[in-house]
Amino acid sequence: MSAFLQVVIAGLVTGSLYGLLTLGIVLIYRTTGVLNFAYGAIASLCACFMYILLTGPRLNFWIALVLTLLFSLLLGIVLERGFARPVLHAPVFTKAIATLALALVLETIAQAIWPQLAEVQHFSTPFEGQALHLGGVYLSAIDIVILVVTASLMLVLNLFLMHTRMGIAMRAMADNIPATRLMGASVGRIFMLVWALSSFLAAICGILLAGQSNLINVQFMDPILLPAFIGAVLGGLDSLPGSLIGGILVGLVSNLLAYFLAGHMLGAVDMSNPAIRDTLIFVGFVIVLLIRPQGLRGRALLRRV
């Protein structure tokens, strides 16, 4: 039983990380219509920046953290002005291709400035090696941090979107940009804020993931991006709570599958291989999408002629 509980908790932790990513993905998609495949690259760029601050000038962890978060806000603003605005009126698919290209460019820039990060490096945090034992369940310190940070970010974000002027304007923009503009909201400034906010979320997710595995390189976010997108689409790509639930669901299912498939063989095929697990998740995702094309929580789309 405690082994099973352990797996569920691990699933929640992974799910929270996915959830942070899906939140950022959905935030950008809902408000600006950009399906952001560069999201992993943004997260990894921020985490790499922090690694350089920690190892280069040997800054204190917390100072480096604050500087990295500031950097992420700045990166979001720069990307909005330099990238998102010029392609604003392009079709959704063109924008999606553009973000794939952006991801390549960001990764190349990161590798050019920090060639040492082409290899896997050690990413150290103050939480390293600390853990909590609660009645047979093992909880490492970083896992607790991940759960707490995700929950509190969720709460703050929810308060922001529901009760502040800016948050309400942001939600209004997701529904109807011209109407929002007529109501007197500065659409350009909100675009900038959305990109800054989502790259802030990406930075937090990147740092937490690097802190959890204690490993980092330029491409360390790549394997995480697809599950996050699957989570986002499962959540319907249009509701923030839905996207968080989608992300957590993918994390949970992934860990549960790993638990149940461990040690099983199907003929000569080792079922515990991550490739098999990912395939099963993908097949499940497609089936869900076929039964509910709008996602688990999304609203059905009405198309006008």
Partner: peptide, 24 residues
């Protein structure tokens, strides 16, 4: 049955999943 952004994600997922299986 799947349109737009959902199809883009699903097909990109197909590519990486197939790649992982071939590698496996």
């Amino acid at each position: 049955r799947i349109s737009g952004a959902h199809l883009a994600v699903a097909t990109l997922g197909l590519v990486t999943t197939v790649g992982a299986l071939l590698n496996f």
